[in-house]
Design a binder for these strands. Structure first.
Lengths: 111, 111
DNA sequence: CCGACCGTACGACTTTCCTCGTACGGACGT
DNA sequence: ACGTCCGTACGAGGAAAGTCGTACGGTCGG
């Protein structure tokens, strides 16, 4: 099926937050913010494809990412403009927080 | 049971985000930010007490609020300092976003 | 045209979350 | 001391989320 994205005005904060409350999806957003548009595959190694599809759907339905077919791939990108327009400063704060959080998690793992 | 709060360094972004991904809890945080320390009761009219206790636990365990007994009440307050130290700028961005979001939801309701 | 590849659709299973009713315990006022 | 109020603990029920296997449909390269 063709992906249907919510309009900018339909984006709801609670959906964005619960979407990003999942570590896998938060990691995806981190990668997209750092590296720009990317294909679906390879973003989360070791996870089955149907699980990935599920997470793309959640991110797309909550308004966090664009999903654009290109050949046999699907390209993902952050909806940075819409998120910034809707919730100014939130995305940048979230990305900074995600970085700090990832560092803390890594520190814990080695502790 | 005595409430046990995570230390500042134990606060994890994914826990904060999924805690705030629930509309009720997001509303509680909005009220606490606006009005400061408040008693548990009366924050969410029409919800049973055991449900409230559940939400306090989620917010407390994720590191978003302090919970402090005072007489026969329990006072709730935002962990603003810890959240700011851990994730600079995030809480303010979230509160601004929550306000914008609440306005949009109200607009939708009247549509 | 055919096989390989990318991603989705669907169904199933498990786990977690949300909500509530009931029972309990501490703190206050009389 | 007694009843009342505030909140928690526990258990149960239903709803939602996360994961996967399998099957399907496009798209590219030979």
């Amino acid at each position: 099926m063709i992906a249907q994205h919510p309009g900018r005005e339909q984006i709801r904060l609670e959906n964005v937050l619960s979407a990003l409350g999942n570590p896998m999806r938060l990691e995806v957003v981190r990668v997209l913010a750092a590296e720009g548009e990317r294909a679906c595959g390879g973003l989360l190694p070791g996870v089955s494809r149907s699980t990935l599809t599920h997470h793309w759907r959640v991110l797309r339905d909550s308004g966090v990412i664009w999903q654009r077919p290109s050949g046999r791939e699907n390209l993902l990108s952050l909806r940075r403009e819409d998120l910034d327009a809707r919730f100014p400063g939130l995305l940048d704060a979230l990305l900074d927080a995600a970085e700090a959080n990832a560092a803390a998690v890594a520190r814990d793992a080695n502790h």
